[in-house]
């Protein structure tokens, strides 16, 4: 299935692109998607955002606009056409 991916702010710098599309097997989770991204980019993403298999506190991931904290964390199951956004710390709107 096809997953639409976005890397924002410092992760955009790290990955060199803002938008990405990945093909992953049906039933994949967010963690599976991170592994697929790692295969494509030589492990860059997980080295930055994971610590011992868990998401570092300062990062967040959105699946269709919802933070995975309110879904099933890195085990959140994806479906075809989902948009996954990798967010670094952000703030400020003055």
């Amino acid at each position: 299935m096809k997953i639409w991916v976005r890397y924002l702010a410092t992760l955009y710098d790290l990955m060199g692109t803002m938008r990405d599309v990945l093909e992953v097997p049906d039933g994949s989770t967010v963690m599976d998607l991170i592994k697929a991204i790692d295969e494509k980019y030589g492990g860059r993403l997980s080295r930055e955002i994971l610590d011992g298999g868990r998401l570092k506190d300062e990062y967040n991931i959105l699946v269709n606009g919802r933070a995975i904290d309110y879904l099933a964390g890195l085990g959140t199951r994806l479906k075809d056409g989902d948009e996954v956004v990798f967010l670094p710390p952000v703030g400020g709107g003055l």
């Binding site: 702010a9 410092t10 703030g91």
Partner: peptide
């Protein structure tokens, strides 16, 4: 040392456009 302060320094406040848009 805070992560948000660092991100604001690099991108300024407009790092929010993509984030707030992603949240709908």
């Amino acid at each position: 040392s805070g992560p948000t302060a660092k991100a604001l320094h690099i991108y300024g406040t407009n790092l929010l456009t993509a984030v707030i848009n992603s949240l709908g």
